[in-house]
Structures are given as structure tokens and as C-alpha cells.
Design a protein around this nucleic acid. Sequence first.
DNA 1: ACCGTTGTTCGACAATCGTCGAACATCCCC
DNA 2: GGGGATGTTCGACGATTGTCGAACAACGGT
Lengths: 101, 101
Amino acid sequence: MEPHEPDLAAVPVTAVLAALADDVRLQIVRALAEGGERACGTFEFGVSKATRSHHLKVLREAGLTRTRAAGTSRYVRLRRDELDHLYPGLLDAVLTQPNRS
Amino acid sequence: MEPHEPDLAAVPVTAVLAALADDVRLQIVRALAEGGERACGTFEFGVSKATRSHHLKVLREAGLTRTRAAGTSRYVRLRRDELDHLYPGLLDAVLTQPNRS
DNA sequence: ACCGTTGTTCGACAATCGTCGAACATCCCC
DNA sequence: GGGGATGTTCGACGATTGTCGAACAACGGT
């Protein structure tokens, strides 16, 4: 089954922004921005695995991440090149920001 | 009365992104990005004035706009300098995007 | 063939959000 | 000062969202 990874250019800007406008998802993106690829289970942000799965789905369907299945695990990575190309400065602007909880 | 315009640095990143993650508000921001200052009433986006007022409030409280009262009107403008300073590239990235409705 | 690990999907629930009309508040002008 | 114009605030409403536990699915090792 294909995990529904849309063409980034076909995703409305508001959907991309909405995907980033959540604390948990932003933490995931921050983590992905430093480590090239990570298994879903390695994200520990105090939410259940159902919620984590949901957030990863939102990110994927917003065109922000790609997912590769390997055995029982699933590896997620940022689509940084495409993002930087279509929204230059967006990721940098968001990621450079200090953690202001 | 001061209309609660927070220090942009004190606003969580997610709140800024959430404020931009709406079609109507994005249209308002786009309009503000070209014309320096506009009265609230000059925004015609097919929503009631109550809704428009609500969206302008969200933008203001997210630190994206400033409002100046003059007579019975209220003039709104983008806080572009502060935004570009704190989130370099964010506005440009979002505004340059074609309208993909 | 089982069992444990890893993720996804399915309701369900509370909270938030976008929207509206109606009521209210200000101001300007005649 | 009465009336019209411009905005804001107040419920109310339906829709969406974040969260969870439980059930399900797929894979790997022993």
C-alpha cells in the first residue's frame, strides 16, 4: 500500500502551515531536521503511539515527510529539499526559533 | 484602550503558524503585504463583519499586525520588520506561494 | 507455529475553531 | 442630539482537531 505522499506543490499553503502549527508535530520536525532518518518509535514526546501515528500521518499528508517501511518498523524523513525549494526560508525560520513553551 | 498587541518574541511559534494557517487570514495578510495600511472594512472576503473582526483579532494577538484607531475606523498594518527579523523568510515563503484553492 | 515488537485504524470524547446574526459601543456629521 | 457608519462582543451552532485505549495487521525471531 502506498502511504499517500502528495506532491508538495499540490498541497495548499494553509495545510502545510497547519501541519507545522502543533507542538508535538513541530518537535517531530525539529528532530527530523537533525537526524536524517528515524523510526517512528524513536519519538518520545509523552503522547500515546496512536497519537504519534496520527501526527506522523498529518505530516506525511501535508507533504512534509516521506515514510519507508522496513520490516516491522517505518522510517520517516523530512522532505527538506522540496520544502526549501518551494518555501525557501520557511523551515529555517521555524526551526531556528528557540523553544518557547 | 490598547488592543493587546503582544511582543512578537513572546508568541509561541505554533501560534504564529496557526494564525497563518487559515485561508481568510492568509488573504488578509497577502493584502496587507502590498498595501501599507488598510481599514478593516476594506477587506471583502465573503465573510460577515463579525468573522472578519475575529480573524483580525487572531492576527493581532499572534503578533502579526498592529491596529491604529482613527475616528470610527481602524487601520491595520503588517508588522513586517519584526516578522522578517524574528522569522527570516517566513513571510516571503508564504506570500510568494501561488493561490492554490 | 507461536509470541513479542511495531504501527495503523477505529470509535469515542473534550476542546477548540470558524461562522453567523444580533446587540452593543464609538465616532462623525447634519 | 439623532442617525448612520464602522467595529467589537456575545452566545450559538456545526465542524474539525488532539487525545486515548482497544482492536487489528504485519513482520521477525526462537
